[in-house]
Amino acid sequence: MGFEPIKILYALGTIFIIFNVGMLIQGIVRKIGARVGKRYGIRFYQPYIDLIKNYVMRSNVTHGVMFYLGPVFRLTGGLGVFLFIPIIYGSQYFSNFAFAGDVVLVLYFIFFGSLGMALGAGEGGHPYSAIGVSRGLAQVTAAEIALVIAVIGVGIQYDTLSITEMVAAQQGGIANWTMVTNPLLTILAMLAFLGAMGRSPFDVVLAPQEIPIGPPTEYHSTFLGIMQTNRSIFPMAKTILFVNLFFGGATNWIVLILKIFIVYMWSVVVGVVFPRFRVDHSIRWWYKYALPLGIIAIIVTTLIAG
C-alpha cells in the first residue's frame, strides 16, 4: 500500500460523504436535543444554511496572521485525522492515506488542529479565548488519559498499532468486537469518547454563558465557516476511530454510518442528561475515575492477551 494519485480523488469522495454525514448528524442531533426539551427544534438541514450563510458573509476582520491561519490549522487537523484513518475495512480506496501511519499518528494528529486553533484564538487577543483554551487544553490532557490507555489496551490485545489490523482482528461477527471481548476497555474508551467530543458534561471549554463560546469568541464569517466545516468532519473522524477500534469497524458505508450514528448518540444522550462539570472537577474526575479504571483495564487486557 503506497501512495497513488488516484487516491486523492477517492479521498475527496470520502471527505464529501463524511462531510454530509456530519452535517446531517449535527442537524438530527440538535433536533433530537430539541425534542428532549419538548421543542420542535431546527430543521434538520439548518446546519447547511448556517454554513452557507457564514461563507457568504460580506465583512471580515482579522487580528493577524496566526488568527487568519487558526481555522486553516483547525480544518487541516480535522481532515488529516480523517484521512489517516482507514474508513471502510477491506476497501483499498476508502482507506484514504492510512498507509502514512498507524493509530499513534491519528492520536497525535488530533492535536494539530486544536493547537493551531488555540494559537489563532490566542492572537485574537480576547481574554475569553485564552481562558477557553486554557480550560480546553487542561481538559483534553486529562481526558486523553483514558484515550491513551484505551489505545494502548487495544494495542496489547491485538498486538498491533495498525488500525487496519485492529479492524481485521475484529471481523467475523459481533462476538469478535472489542466491545465484547474486552468490555472494560470499551467502557473506558467510551468515557474517553465523551471527553473527545466536548459535549456536556465536558463542554466547559465553549461555555457560551460565562466565556462567550471560549476560543472562537472572535471568529466569525468565513473563519467560522471553516470551523463549522471542520465540525462536521472532525467528530466524525474521531467516531470512526472508536468504531474501528472497539466496534468492529465497517465493511461498507451503510454499516459505517449506522455505527457512527449510534456511537455518536452515546455522547448526545450523556450530554442531554448530565450538567456541565467545572474544569477542575472534570480534570479531577479523569484522574480519579478514568485513571484507575484504565489501570484495571490494562491489567485485565494483559491477562486476556496472555
Binding site: A34, G37, K38, R39, Y40, G41, I42, R43, Q46, I49, D50, K53, M57, P208, Q209, P212, I213, P216, T217, E218, Y219, H220, L224
Partner: peptide, 22 residues
C-alpha cells in the same frame, strides 16, 4: 426560544458574541 414559541424552527438562534451574530 422555549417550547411554547420555539423560534429555532425558523432558523433563528442566539449567539453569544456580536462577531458571530447578524
Amino acid at each position: 426560544m422555549t417550547p411554547r414559541f420555539d423560534a429555532y424552527r425558523y432558523g433563528i438562534q442566539w449567539r453569544p458574541t456580536p462577531r458571530q451574530s447578524n
